[in-house]
Amino acid sequence: MTTNDDLDLDEYDLFTKKNVFALLKEYCKLWFTLHHPVTNNLTPEEVRETKRSLDDALVLFGAIKEVFDDLPEDVQELVRNSPIPVLGDDLERPKWL
């Protein structure tokens, strides 16, 4: 069995700016597809699949929330500036939002 020690991975490799940006981008795309009246022409099955994908993304955001203070500032800034709040209300949002 392979462990992180065997691979010599930093535990925060998953939370690089590139990876977090891709997650935020996909989450926002799914959220707007589901909630925006102009683009929501989904079948009931597509709605269920989209909701499942959003739930999966929220699990990842939960992991990000756990290590948020240890993440690089640029990654924290990406999460704070997300057009859709992904970590709840306990993180300070920018004043312009």
Rank of each mutant, 00 (worst) to 15 (best):
L30C: 05
V20K: 09
R80N: 07
L78F: 06
K17T: 07
D69S: 12
L71M: 10
E26L: 13
A57T: 01
F32Y: 14
T2Q: 10
N40F: 04
L71T: 06
E11L: 11
K25L: 11
R48E: 12
I84V: 15
K51V: 03
K17L: 09
P85C: 06
L14H: 10
A57E: 01
D5L: 13
C28W: 04
A63Y: 15
K51S: 05
E77Y: 13
N81G: 00
D74H: 13
A22L: 13
F61T: 02
E45Q: 15
E49K: 13
R52N: 08
L87M: 10
T2M: 07
L9E: 06
D70M: 05
V47K: 14
D69E: 14
R52V: 00
T16K: 09
C28A: 07
N4P: 03
V75Q: 08
T2R: 06
V79A: 03
K95P: 10
N4A: 10
T39Q: 09
K29C: 04
W31G: 01
D56S: 09
L58P: 00
V67Y: 09
W31F: 14
E45K: 15
V20A: 05
T2Y: 12
D89Q: 12
A22D: 14
L42H: 07
P94L: 06
V67H: 14
I64C: 06
S82I: 10
L30M: 05
S82Y: 02
L42A: 08
C28Y: 06
Y12V: 02
D8N: 15
P44K: 11
T50E: 00
E45F: 10
K25F: 15
N81I: 00
H36E: 09
E66F: 06
D90I: 04
K95G: 06
L7Y: 07
F68H: 10
R93K: 15
V20P: 05
K29Q: 11
P94G: 09
L24C: 07
Y27A: 03
D8F: 12
A63D: 11
Y27R: 02
L30S: 05
N19A: 15
V67W: 07
K29M: 07
L91T: 11
H36W: 11
H35G: 04
D55A: 06
R93I: 01
T50R: 08
A57H: 14
A63M: 13
R48P: 00
V47Q: 09
L42R: 09
L91C: 03
